[in-house]
Simulated scan of single mutants.
Amino acid sequence: MGRVLSVNAREFEEWMQRSLAACEAALDGFVPIDAPVGLGVAMRYAVLDGGKRLRPLLVLATCEAVDGDREAAMRAACAVELIHAYSLVHDDMPCMDDDVLRRGKPTVHVQFGEAQAMLAGDAMQALAFDVLTPDSGVAPALQARLCALLARSAGHAGMAGGQAIDLASVGLSLDEATLRDMHRRKTGVLLQASVMMGAACAETPARATAALAEYGAALGLAFQVVDDILDVTQDSEVLGKTAGKDQDANKPTYVSLMGLEPARALAQELRCQAQQALADSGLPNTAWLSMLADMVVERDN
């Protein structure tokens, strides 16, 4: 396997903290507190001061790898996090997964009520596309490309479709191909889109674009496989959400399908695929992307 640029963990941590701080500041500016009758408060509760921010980090790391437009990338990073946050708010509601804990605190519908949670999710989804379409600073063609990538990953062919399959699969025995398709749609496509949005911020060569798409696909599935593993190996305090939820709800997962150790082996295999894709990209500076792939597989929450 080819080698990607190696940097030490301290440099990566410093880059990550700078990126997270910049993203948090941008989100703080984009998400209004003065929306009517407390809606802004619920929105800010849902998206600020919590979460791993993996999707924004993927956007920003890919933009750096292709030497892209930094302003466009930061807007894309915030937009994809808004979409992710809205999806969590809706997924946690009683009509779907009925969860009470998210990011170590009560879910939005528990804190603010079901109607306000639904509206907060709706508003964040709309705000994501508002953030991607400023009056100036980002070329119209790039705005359109970023909006298309995000919309396609979040809609019926991606995240929403995956959640529909997930809800319809409770109590069923799925084969690996069907489970993979569900996870690809529900989780993987938005993670892959984060990478592709970063790549869209530059005139990225076709070879590198294809390799980055392979990287995003492998990392997206690895993320969900690890999530399935953590659901049965960690407690709620570490996860920041209800542990054992999938098992209790009789949902199909990689652990229930193939067992714990084979699932762990699959996560490692997917990490190798992601790293190989980076090596095949021809890009000289994929260090942050490489270390993000390691972080996804090695995380404990």
Rank of each mutant, 00 (worst) to 15 (best):
M197L: 06
V189N: 11
P205F: 10
V195Q: 07
L191T: 00
T204D: 02
M196P: 12
L190C: 10
V195L: 06
M196S: 07
R184A: 09
A199V: 09
S194W: 10
A210P: 12
A193Y: 10
A208R: 07
G188R: 04
K186W: 11
A200I: 06
P205I: 02
A208G: 09
A210C: 10
P205S: 02
A208W: 07
A206K: 14
T187G: 05
T187R: 04
T209A: 15
T204W: 03
K186P: 12
R185H: 06
A200K: 04
R184M: 08
T204Y: 04
M182T: 01
Q192S: 13
M182R: 12
A210G: 09
M197E: 00
G188E: 01
V195G: 09
M196W: 05
A208Y: 08
A202G: 06
E203T: 15
K186F: 11
A202N: 07
A210D: 13
M182I: 01
T187V: 03
S194G: 15
P205N: 03
T209G: 10
T209C: 14
R207V: 07
S194T: 05
Q192M: 15
L190H: 05
R184Q: 13
C201K: 06
A200P: 05
G188I: 01
T209L: 15
R184C: 09
T209Y: 13
H183R: 06
A206W: 12
A200T: 02
L191W: 00
A200R: 03
M182L: 15
A206R: 13
M196C: 09
T187P: 14
K186H: 11
A200C: 03
M182V: 02
H183T: 01
T204R: 02
E203F: 09
A208V: 00
G198M: 08
M196V: 08
A211Y: 14
G198N: 13
V189F: 15
A202V: 13
E203N: 14
R185P: 09
R207S: 14
T204F: 11
H183E: 02
R184S: 12
A202P: 11
A202M: 09
P205T: 01
V189H: 15
Q192L: 12
A208S: 14
A206F: 14
R207T: 03
G198C: 11
M197W: 03
R185L: 07
G188T: 03
C201R: 04
H183V: 01
A200Y: 00
K186V: 02
A193Q: 06
A206H: 11
L190D: 01
R185S: 05
L191S: 02
A202K: 08
A208I: 00
C201F: 04
A206V: 15
M182A: 06
R185W: 10
V195K: 10
A202C: 08
R207E: 09
R184V: 00
T204V: 15
A202D: 01
A210S: 10
R185K: 14
A193C: 12
T204M: 04
C201V: 03
A210V: 08
L190K: 06
V189R: 15
M197Q: 05
Q192F: 09
M182F: 12
T209Q: 13
E203C: 05
Q192T: 11
L191V: 00
Q192G: 09
M182W: 14
K186R: 12
